[in-house]
Nucleic acid binder design. Structure first.
Length: 319
DNA sequence: GCGATTTGACCTGT
DNA sequence: ACAGGTCAAATCGC
């Protein structure tokens, strides 16, 4: 039986808190001297936060009261000892799988790196299967998030060496990570949530003062607006030394993801910003699965995944 | 001992 | 029926 976890609650609280903080920041940015792009960017982030929180709340509502859903979750569900409906965890998993976002990437592993498989993308994956694929030279490996059981994270990925180029891997991602990686920043945020729950006003005020300092610091930097948008993304530390290039090629957007962060940004900005990020860029690899009527048509996102936040990758390609 | 990987069996979707 | 996806027992490696 799946219950709404405290992780889910914390994520919702975190998203709503972030939305509030961003709205507050937007209020500052709305002064006449501020750039329109910076304001737009903040609006996108705010909407993204509220989208995430609402999605989670919808999901929680379904879990806690499946009768409010479309009925799929109720079929053949066993009952708990107190007579209430239990969700058949299998049904729930299938329903979740069907609605999980999907996207893909191609990654080239540099020669002489000694790597047998593609890069570490910053998340913890656990291999759970491998399958020979009909008509393909190389088997497909199946990975799921290590935190599936501890945090209920349903993210999975499939990695397969391409037939044509043995140094090129096709990676299919399915599902966003709902797990929380304990980076230093996240540890601070989690501890702040706890402090708020515990009513530690002193700590909250200290944190808010720090946030204001950060905003002031950003305001004092007269950045090019495009760079300003770009640098506001969160990048993890480089995860390994291997040289590789990747191409993230949006196929098409699902209705749900049409509300996602990048779909609200215009084509040029995404292209420009990602180009700015190139470090060891060597070659653009076009994805044959791309659909030509995509809002991201002709968009080549060539990124060094070593500096790319997987949360950011989550927004790139859906099909 | 424990977590990760391997791999054959089983399940699911078309 | 078949290919793809997942499970889970056995095995590996630290």
């Amino acid at each position: 039986m799946e219950k709404v976890s405290s992780w889910d609650r914390k994520i919702v609280i975190s998203e709503l808190t972030q939305g509030r903080d961003l709205a507050s920041e937007l209020k500052n940015q709305l002064q006449p001297a501020k750039s329109r792009e910076a304001c737009q960017h903040l609006v996108e982030k705010i909407l993204s936060s509220y989208d995430n929180a609402l999605s989670l709340l919808n999901c929680m509502a379904l879990i806690e009261n499946p009768s409010q859903g479309n009925g799929l979750l109720r079929s053949a569900s066993p009952r708990s000892s107190d007579g209430s409906d239990l969700i058949d965890s299998k049904d729930l998993v299938i329903k979740k799988r069907k609605t999980l976002a999907k996207w893909s990437a191609q990654v080239r592993v540099g020669c002489g790196t000694g790597l047998e498989g593609p890069f570490d993308d910053g998340y913890n994956w656990r291999k759970y299967g491998q399958k020979d694929i009909f008509g393909a030279k190389f088997p497909r490996a199946y990975y799921r998030c290590t935190h599936r059981h501890t945090q209920g994270c349903l993210a999975t990925k499939q990695i397969q060496k391409t037939d044509e180029d043995t140094s090129l891997f096709k990676i299919n991602y399915k599902g966003r990570h709902s797990c929380i990686r304990e980076t230093e920043k996240q540890k601070k945020e989690n501890s702040l949530i706890l402090k708020k729950e515990e009513g530690d006003e002193e700590e909250i005020q200290r944190h808010e003062a720090q946030q204001k300092m950060i905003i002031l610091k950003n305001e004092s930097l007269e950045l090019d607006t495009k760079e300003e948008i770009f640098t506001s993304f969160e990048f993890p530390e480089p995860v390994n030394e291997s040289n590789f290039s990747a191409s993230y090629s949006p196929s098409f957007l699902s209705p749900a993801t049409s509300e996602s962060y990048f779909s609200r940004m215009n084509h040029f900005e995404i292209h420009h910003n990602l180009r700015t990020s190139e470090s060891d860029f060597t070659k653009i690899i076009s994805d044959p699965t791309s659909v030509t009527n995509s809002p991201f048509e002709d968009l080549d996102l060539s990124i060094d995944p070593g500096v790319l936040d997987p949360k950011f990758l989550d927004t790139l390609e859906y099909f």
